[in-house]
Design a protein around this nucleic acid. Structure first.
Length: 226
DNA sequence: CAGACGATTGCCT
DNA sequence: GGCAATCGTCTGT
C-alpha cells in the first residue's frame, strides 16, 4: 500500500496523534508483511512539554525529535523495553507521537514468535509490547516511516464518537498542566488499548475527601505553598 | 566517573 | 496491589 506522506506528520502533534488512530503500522520482514491497526497514541510536544524528552533540550538521545517529520524516534526505557514514536511538526521542532497499542492484523505468527506469547490480546497492547512484536530496537531509531522497510499506511478513519482521550500514561510525576492534559487518544471499542496502571496511593484519594478532612487542613495550613 | 532514573512489563502474594 | 528487572542517558562531582 501507499505509506502516509511526510506532509501527514508535518502538522500539529495532537492532530497527528488523533489522525493516526485507525492507521496501519507495517513492517516488511522475512518475506512477509506485519500489519497492526493503531488504536492508542500519545502526543509529546516540544521543550515546553515537561513530559516530553525534549524538556532537557537537544541531547544525543533527543536529537531525532528535532529531525524531519516522518522519521522514527525509538528509545530504550527501563533497560529492556523499546518504545516507538513518529516524529512530527517541522524540522527543528522537537515533537512526536508515541504509538501505545495496535490490533494485530497480519503476520501474527511472526509477532507471537518475537513476543514469546500466543495470546493475541497481549501481543501489542502496550508501547513496549508492540515494539517487541514488530522486532523494533535502537537500530530503528531515525528510520524513515515513509517506507520501504517500516511505514504507516492509511486505514479506515475512526469516527469522533469512537475516540476517547485521557492524561498520558506514566506522566503523573511531571508538573501541571502536563500531568493531566488529555493528550492520550484511544479507540473506545478496542480491546487492545492498554489497561494503564493504578495511580500511586496519594493520587487515588477520593476527590470528595481532598481538603475535606483534618489532616489535609492541617497540612495546608503548615505548608501554604502546596 | 559514580549515581539516579525512567513515556513498562510480567510475575508475585 | 506490590515490586523487581536492567541499561542507556543525563547530571553533578
Amino acid at each position: 500500500m501507499t505509506p502516509l506522506p511526510r506532509s501527514f506528520y508535518s502538522r500539529p502533534t495532537v492532530t497527528v496523534a488523533r489522525e493516526l488512530l485507525g492507521s496501519i503500522l507495517c513492517r516488511r520482514v522475512d518475506g512477509l508483511t506485519l500489519r497492526g491497526r493503531i488504536v492508542e497514541t500519545e502526543a509529546y510536544v516540544g521543550e515546553g512539554d515537561l513530559a516530553c524528552h525534549a524538556r532537557a533540550g537537544r541531547t544525543p538521545r533527543t536529537a531525532p525529535l528535532y529531525g524531519p517529520p516522518g522519521i522514527a524516534y525509538v528509545y530504550l526505557t527501563y533497560g529492556m523495553h523499546h518504545l516507538l514514536n513518529a516524529v512530527t511538526e517541522e524540522e527543528g521542532m522537537p515533537a512526536a507521537v508515541l504509538l501505545r497499542a495496535l490490533e494485530p492484523m497480519e503476520g501474527i505468527e511472526w509477532m507471537e514468535g518475537a513476543r514469546g506469547v500466543r495470546t493475541v490480546h497481549h501481543l501489542t497492547s502496550g508501547p513496549g509490547k508492540l515494539a517487541q512484536a514488530f522486532g523494533l530496537d535502537l537500530q530503528w531509531n531515525r528510520a524513515d516511516l515513509t517506507g520501504p522497510d517500516l511505514w504507516i499506511e492509511p486505514g479506515s478513519r475512526v469516527p469522533d464518537r469512537e475516540v476517547k482521550t485521557s492524561p498520558r500514561i506514566g506522566c503523573q510525576s511531571v508538573p501541571e498542566p502536563w500531568a493531566t492534559i488529555r493528550w492520550r487518544f484511544y479507540v473506545a471499542s478496542s480491546r487492545h488499548v492498554t489497561p494503564g496502571r493504578a495511580s500511586p496511593k496519594l493520587l487515588v484519594t477520593n476527590p470528595r475527601r481532598i481538603g475535606n478532612n483534618r489532616a489535609d487542613k492541617r497540612r495546608s495550613r503548615n505548608t501554604p505553598g502546596r
